[in-house]
């Protein structure tokens, strides 16, 4: 059984969604919920932080939270994912 391919933007969404479902999340929780190994997740977390979609909690740097920009990204992803699904496609 071939593993389904996940695009970069889909992985971003899965990570942000994993954090959002907890409010604030530690890296181990994100690894489990977004189904990513530690080294790849680290790379994506850096990218998301650079893009301003995700940030470390000021009081506890081991916790991540989704920024306002990240929330907008999640909403737009869901909207456009519905659009793609109407065509029978994944984004």
């Amino acid at each position: 059984m071939r593993k389904a391919y996940r695009s970069r933007v889909r992985i971003y969404y899965d990570i942000l969604n994993a954090v959002l479902s907890q409010g604030h999340a530690k890296i181990t929780v994100i690894m489990r919920d977004a189904n990513l190994p530690y080294d790849r997740l680290q790379k994506y977390l850096e990218e998301l932080a650079e893009k301003g979609l995700l940030a470390r909690h000021p009081d506890d740097p081991s916790l991540f939270y989704v920024t306002e920009k990240g929330l907008r990204f999640v909403e737009e992803f869901q909207r456009f994912a519905r659009l793609a699904r109407a065509f029978g496609l994944e984004i």
Binding site: S7, R8, V9, F73, E76, F77, F80, L83, A84, L89, E90, I91
Partner: peptide, 11 residues
């Protein structure tokens, strides 16, 4: 517009 926001090749 969707592509420019998300960068997905499908779009």
């Amino acid at each position: 517009r969707a592509y420019l926001r998300l960068g997905s090749s499908t779009l």
